[in-house]
Amino acid sequence: AGDISHLASIVILLHKIYTSHSCRGISFKTQALYVLVFLTRYLDLFWHWVSLYNTAMKVFFIASSVYVLYLMKYKYRPTHDPSIDTFKVEYLLGPCLILGLIFNYEFKFTEILWSFSIWLEAVAILPQLFMLQRTGEAEAITTHYLAALGAYRALYIPNWIWRYFGDNVVDPIAVVAGLVQTGLYLDFFYVYFTKVLQGQKFELPA
């Protein structure tokens, strides 16, 4: 369900860009961070086979994130306003690299990159949420995208509990980062459920 929600979020995002011929309201910085997240995490495509499902999803996430970046940077460039997308990504990249160096399952390059990608994914939404807060409002379709994206990691949580009791395995890095990631959406979810799903416009209180 988490993976399908993640997949759905990307489909909704592409649908929003296509139908409105615009990437207004979407943070380029957040989208660029996702490209970095997928590239650093899915390097193991080249040597670690899990399943056709796993491989297909990895390829889709890399390809679609690069494609969204292309749409924003070239095809719909005039519709993107960098003056409101001002979050400093350096504040995220540095700490995530440090977290990757401290918390990893083996002190080697690919494992550090994997851990870095987990931490970076947890906070990659911040430029987008920062932008949302600056503008104070969003199109309904953009909020559906964010809701699906936020629900994705939240839906992994029951799976981790299941695997703890069922398979007796736990991945503390993924669990802690996943809880942080979900936590960052709580404010958004509150407004989404109390306004957008009640048919009102997404507007933040002044």
């Binding site: 993976d3 993640h6 193991d44 670690h48 899990v50 796993n54 999803m57 990895k58 996430f61 399952y105 083996e106 994997w114 992994y156 695997r163 007796n168 395995v169 736990v170 991945d171 503390p172 993924a174």
Partner: peptide, 10 residues
Amino acid sequence: EILRTEKDEL
């Protein structure tokens, strides 16, 4: 084995 180091999730 309690620590999952096998990368089988996305």
